[in-house]
Design a protein around this nucleic acid. Sequence first.
DNA 1: TATTGTTATACTCTATAACTATA
DNA 2: TATAGTTATAGAGTATAACAATA
Lengths: 143, 143
Amino acid sequence: MTTPADATDSFEADAPGQGDELVDLLVQTSFDVIAIVTRVGAEHDMSLTLVRMLGILRDRTLKAAELADYLGLERSTVSGLIDRAERRGFVVREAHSADGRSVQLRLTDAGQAMAKRGADEIAVRMAPLLERVPPRLRELLAD
Amino acid sequence: MTTPADATDSFEADAPGQGDELVDLLVQTSFDVIAIVTRVGAEHDMSLTLVRMLGILRDRTLKAAELADYLGLERSTVSGLIDRAERRGFVVREAHSADGRSVQLRLTDAGQAMAKRGADEIAVRMAPLLERVPPRLRELLAD
DNA sequence: TATTGTTATACTCTATAACTATA
DNA sequence: TATAGTTATAGAGTATAACAATA
């Protein structure tokens, strides 16, 4: 906006206009989705972060530092998160075979069960939201 | 799953299977989007909730209780949120014309400016994400 | 020296409960 | 009585900084 009569204004990255409805739609939808995940978690006394943790560890075994990367959180934060998850029997800290400093994180059977249950419930809650998507569009999305 | 040999299994709400990839995609994308909004907010020392508040009040004037409904938070929580936003000059509490108990919330010019700036920055950060969406699909989404 | 994980500390966000003022 | 908002309090989530153990 430093050059007053600039015909290419609407193509500048810092002068949005055209695609904003789509951005708004995506942001609003995202908040709705996260709200669903948060609610399902809350019904099982789990924070959004704990739900994410179970989802991530569901089909992986990770070191604590790797989990921190996945979650975008500090190691110290994840340390406490693991504490709480372990106390509830969802996860165990195992010795890492190759690195004495690391701990390997693994879901317990209870953790696996809760992860599956949560995923199922989330899918059910999201069904009404997905049903509003036209079938043709839904197929396109599944590429 | 109470009737063992049920051919309509895959259509039962509590026996998900088919559309799970789509659900996962939507959830993962939502986390990515929220991460962008969170990061943009953090760069301006704003929590995700404060960013949402500015976005909501951008084209509306609301009572505190209404804002709480929009955000899905308790009134007491929103009270503190308004405190902090007011202290930073983003919003003002005005007397409600018809109800002496209520406060009317209105963005200041600074609040409007920050709301616009945040929305613009979010749109810019989301551009790479949107560019991965095929144009044909993007048109369909904008219905 | 660098990295992994933990602990101590502090701040923000959130809810519950109790309260005041108004309806 | 019921509703709008505030305050006090407590708990969870988060980051920063300092630390011990291992690489």
